[in-house]
Structures are given as structure tokens and as C-alpha cells.
């Protein structure tokens, strides 16, 4: 399969990263913040695979790292969603600016 120049993938990754940061800064809904984190992780994974395809085409190290990253993201999503569920049950709310129970 003939390929794009590497920078195009990097640009897509940069745009996704910026969107993720925007969501993480802006949103107060805990679920939306989780969405933003997933978008960030995806942009990082795209970088792993793109770099290994262009700079080390005969190795699969980047793909292995991306696999680990995806698995970690699965664990993170499971725990994050469980926390959101627990907080929602306790407070009937998922607004992170209202959750002050652990503030020192």
C-alpha cells in the first residue's frame, strides 16, 4: 500500500491531541473528560504506529507499544467508569466541580 508522507499522520495526531486537551480543560462532566482522555490516548497510539512504520519499517516495536497502550486504556476506562458510577450513586451528579469530598 503506498503511503502518505509521515507529517500528515503527525498533523492528524496533533489536531486530535489539541481536541483532547480542549475537552480536558473545558468540560466539567466527568464522562466528557473521560472521552477527552480516550482521544488523547488515541492520538498517542497513532504516533507510535506512524513513527514505527516510517522510521523503522522492518520492526513492529511501535505496534507492540500501541497494543500495551490500548490494553492500559481499557483498564483505565473500566476503573474510570466505575468511579463515575459510584460518584453518581452517592451524589446523583457527575459535575466534577461539585465533587469536593476529598478536598483537603
Amino acid at each position: 500500500m503506498i503511503l502518505e508522507p509521515l507529517v500528515n499522520y503527525l498533523f492528524v495526531s496533533v489536531v486530535l491531541f489539541a481536541i483532547g486537551v480542549y475537552g480536558l480543560v473545558t468540560k466539567k462532566n466527568a464522562l466528557r473528560m473521560l472521552f477527552a482522555v480516550e482521544i488523547l490516548i488515541n492520538s498517542a497510539n497513532l504516533n507510535f504506529v506512524a513513527f514505527t512504520r516510517y522510521l523503522h519499517p522492518t520492526s513492529v516495536t511501535g505496534q507492540a507499544l500501541a497494543m500495551f497502550s490500548i490494553s492500559l486504556a481499557a483498564a483505565e476506562a473500566a476503573v474510570g467508569l466505575a468511579i463515575i458510577l459510584a460518584v453518581f450513586r452517592l451524589r446523583k451528579d457527575v459535575d466534577v466541580s461539585e465533587i469536593k469530598g476529598l478536598r483537603g
Partner: peptide
């Protein structure tokens, strides 16, 4: 990286 060219060889 702008000079990174696509290669046909792949793993």
C-alpha cells in the same frame, strides 16, 4: 520528519 519517505518494505 518532513523528509521521511514512505518505504515499500514492511514487517
Amino acid at each position: 520528519f518532513t523528509h521521511a519517505t514512505p518505504t515499500l518494505e514492511q514487517a
